[in-house]
């Protein structure tokens, strides 16, 4: 289980962790600006799981990148935990990601020269603090995802599902406010995908964070509280 000595993520003074208002994103091209997101509005409460669907090129990754303080919108407001991401400079964005956000990707993005526990420790390294405490958090996080016996293994020694669970542990260890997952089950078989999603939900329950999953995988539907579709740059909630 997650180290309970650290306080759980508490609800911010505002009701929602994530607030997007009239967010647009355009890319410059020789033929003129190409709109990718048009007037996106979105609010996500703590503990909520949002599924983002959409065809390739619909803007799912762009929206995730804006939410992840990796990219900035052309216009509109992006607030996470009351922090306006559009005014953050590069250094501030990096710090914000370190403190508030967790990421899970389709192809895991683990550092191959670090063991499972070292990969998880890498996520809390930027936050500082005693090394022993960080290592202990990592071990606990791995235990929480059922990989307590694999802490000293390298990614190449783990299966796809195990690697994704290491990635989940890495995302969760710092008790983030928001987890962004881009096709987290894309490289997994169906059974493993369910395992991973269940793991994500368990961790979410423990930490109280919001979870936004961009995916084509229909099995995610069962785990989502709300489902949105991105179509021609516009976001619509599905029933």
């Amino acid at each position: 289980m997650i180290d309970t000595s650290k306080p759980q993520a508490q609800a911010e003074p505002t009701e929602f962790i994530v607030q997007l208002h009239a967010v647009t994103k355009q890319y410059a091209s020789e033929a003129g600006p190409v709109p990718v997101l048009r007037g996106i509005d979105l609010c996500v409460a703590p503990g909520e799981t949002i599924m983002l669907k959409g065809v390739s090129g619909s803007g799912k990754s762009t929206l995730l990148h804006i939410l992840g303080a990796i990219d900035k919108p052309t216009s509109g407001a992006v607030q996470i935990c009351g922090e306006d991401l559009s005014v953050l400079n590069n250094q501030a964005q990096t710090t914000f990601r370190a403190q508030r956000l967790g990421f899970v990707f389709q192809f895991f993005n683990l550092i191959p020269t670090l063991t499972a526990s070292e990969n998880v420790v890498a996520a809390v390294d930027p936050l500082g603090g005693p090394r022993k405490a960080r290592e202990q958090s990592a071990v606990l996080a791995l235990q929480a995802v059922g990989l307590g016996e694999h802490v000293t293994k390298y990614p190449s020694q783990l299966s796809g599902g195990q690697q994704q669970r290491v990635a989940i542990a890495r995302a969760m260890v710092k008790r983030p406010t928001l987890i962004l997952a881009d096709e987290p089950t894309g490289a997994l078989d169906s059974a493993t995908a369910h395992q991973v999603l269940q793991c994500l939900k368990n961790m979410q329950r423990d930490t109280g964070c919001a979870l936004i999953i961009a995916t084509h995988d229909p099995i995610v539907t069962d785990y989502a509280d709300r489902i949105y579709r991105l179509d021609s740059g516009q976001l619509e909630e599905e029933a």
């Binding site: 990796i70 590069n90 250094q91 990096t94 710090t95 990601r97 370190a98 403190q99 990421f103 993005n109 683990l110 550092i111 191959p112 020269t113 890498a122 996520a123 390294d125 930027p126 936050l127 890495r170």
Partner: peptide, 16 residues
């Protein structure tokens, strides 16, 4: 390069 980008994603600053 991919490793370094992953670290940036985790919040490693440019200096590090």
């Amino acid at each position: 390069k991919g490793d370094y980008q992953s670290l940036r994603l985790l919040g490693y600053g440019d200096g590090l």
